[in-house]
Design a protein around this nucleic acid. Structure first.
Length: 479
RNA sequence: CGGGGUGUAGCGCAGCCCGGUAGCGCGCUUCGUUCGGGACGAAGAGGUCGGAGGUUCAAAUCCUCUCACCCCGACCA
């Protein structure tokens, strides 16, 4: 079955609608029968698989190993860490019946795995020689959210969660920041999505963490998306699950912990970071198909064209370009142009009898619409080069967009005015008070996305209270 | 949980006000002609009108109840 509809809602008309249209028409995902659930379709899953492959390698390069922990967790585990249970209890799914009868103790379906992991770590850690313990798992988790959106917030989602145990606070803090940096590199170098790293405020941090850090990206509607988090858990879970080790001096100590994760939400971020009114735009490094070849022929020229296409496919594979040939004879070339633009394939090659006669092919770049007429002998080299060029251009474009939509404001009037008329990210000083943070959120819907690492050393007047000695933070309306 | 909306063919919808043979577009199947920016013709397949009850000679249509989903808010990656 080919595409059903012609085009999507314009971004400027209704960004939310645009997003849903793109997800469904590019066949990334569909709604599941249970509220808030999502079927990730093959094309969407291929993107996720690319994410997984890259991240997995990055985790291994930083010394982590993969494991798998059960999805069902005894209910009382969750209650062991006070903040953790308070944070997660409202959105936990509970299994009360199984095997045809009521269970002795209900089971929770993991909303995250800290509790079961630390239950196991207690068994595995006894000496400083067992540390650090650096485990990651790829898994599904369930959080019963009130409002859901495909990829961005679904009842069940896929993610990876790293859980590490360390002998010292310093080492655990280092790990927390190391993994945040891994996320930043992944977002920027692979997804071509610029992010801001920083620390979460007390009210925005993970339930059970000492500190939470995040990467924050700007979507094309100028709203913020938290794209990944890394938590320094201190000894909170070690205390709750009594995980201790004997140090070199034969003394018993509680271990220090981190956890960090990114989810299928990243796919939503990718869509909203680059897409346009024609649909999806995928950066080459994560695109399932980097190049789509659309052969143009009639019955009498079919063999000629397809013969040349087969040659080109071989050449492209030899230079590691992921190529797809759309040789469906039932669809017209024009139809295919539109469909593959909708699906965000970074580059399209058109090749027909006239091209072959001239020894060339037409290359069209998805995000810019620029047409190149390239000699067949140079096509593979050209496209391999464009993989890099397009990737860079998309990152630069996203960065320029973010910078153009980031505003620094001095006072409250300016804050509200800027948020209403321009939106985007707002840099402003904040006195560190949770009440002020809550008031600002209440009055403007903007939240503190993070306290950026990269900010001026200067301190200034709080944008809400005018208090001197306030620090600069990043505000935005967020997903 | 509040506000709004929608349930009729795979998808998008009309029909409902004013009860009387269930329709349209797209998609799908077969054949032929096409093919350089969303091709065309011909012939087909496909629906317990979300569910239950009621009114009526007769209900997609009127009444009552119910379920589900989507969108907007309060919670969250």
């Amino acid at each position: 079955m080919r595409l059903v509809s012609k085009g999507v809602t314009k971004q400027s008309e209704d960004f939310s609608k645009w997003y849903t249209d793109v997800v469904r028409q590019a066949k990334l995902a569909d709604y599941g029968p249970v509220k808030g659930t999502m079927v990730i379709r093959p094309y969407g899953y291929a993107i996720w698989e690319n994410f997984q492959g890259i991240l997995n390698q990055m985790f291994k390069d930083t010394g982590h190993v993969n494991a798998y922990f059960p999805m069902f967790i005894p209910e009382h585990f969750l209650k062991k860490e006070a903040e953790h249970v308070e944070g997660f209890a409202p959105e936990v799914a509970v299994v009360t019946h199984a095997g045809g009868k009521e269970l002795e103790e209900p089971l929770i379906v993991r909303p995250t795995s800290e509790t079961i992991i630390w239950h196991m770590y207690k068994k595995w850690i006894s000496s400083y020689r067992d540390l650090p313990l650096l485990i990651n798992q790829w898994a599904n988790v369930v959080r019963w959210e009130m409002r859901t959106r495909l990829f961005l917030r679904t009842t069940e989602f896929l993610w990876q969660e790293g859980h590490t145990a360390h002998a010292t606070a310093e080492e655990a803090e280092e790990e927390t920041l190391r993994m945040l940096e891994v996320y930043k590199r992944f977002a920027e170098d692979y997804m071509a999505m610029p992010v801001i790293t920083g620390q979460k405020t007390e009210s925005e941090k993970f339930a059970g963490a000492v500190n939470t850090y995040s990467i924050e990206a700007m979507m094309r509607d100028t709203k913020a998306l938290q794209a990944g988090t890394s938590h320094y858990l201190g000894q909170n879970f070690a205390k709750a699950f009594e995980v201790t080790f004997q140090n070199k001096d034969n003394k018993e100590e509680l271990v220090y912990a981190t956890s960090w994760g990114v989810s299928t939400r990243l796919v939503g971020g990718l869509i909203m970071c680059h897409g346009d009114d024609k649909g999806l735009i995928l950066p080459p490094r994560v695109a399932p198909h980097q190049v789509v070849i659309i052969p143009i022929f009639r019955n009498d020229t079919k063999d000629l064209v397809m013969g040349k296409v087969a040659e080109l496919v071989g050449e492209l594979k030899a230079v590691s370009v992921r190529v797809h040939v759309d040789d469906d004879e039932k669809a017209s070339p024009g139809f295919k142009f539109n469909e593959w633009e909708m699906c965000g394939v970074p580059m399209r090659v058109e090749i027909g009898p006239k091209d072959i006669e001239k020894g060339q092919a037409v290359v069209v770049i998805r995000h810019s619409g620029v047409k190149h007429f390239v000699a067949l002998t140079e096509l593979a080299t050209f496209l391999a080069g464009q993989v890099v060029t397009v990737q860079d251009e998309l990152f630069q474009r996203a960065l320029d967009f973010r910078e153009a939509n980031t505003h620094t404001v001095e006072n409250w009037e300016e804050f509200k005015e800027t948020l209403e008329t321009k939106g985007g990210f707002i840099k402003a000083f904040w006195n560190g008070s949770a009440e002020v943070e809550a008031k600002i959120k209440e009055e403007t819907k903007a939240t503190i996305r993070c306290i950026p690492f990269d900010r001026p050393g200067v301190i200034g007047k709080c944008v809400y209270t005018g208090d001197e000695g306030s620090q600069q933070v990043l505000f935005a309306r967020a997903y």
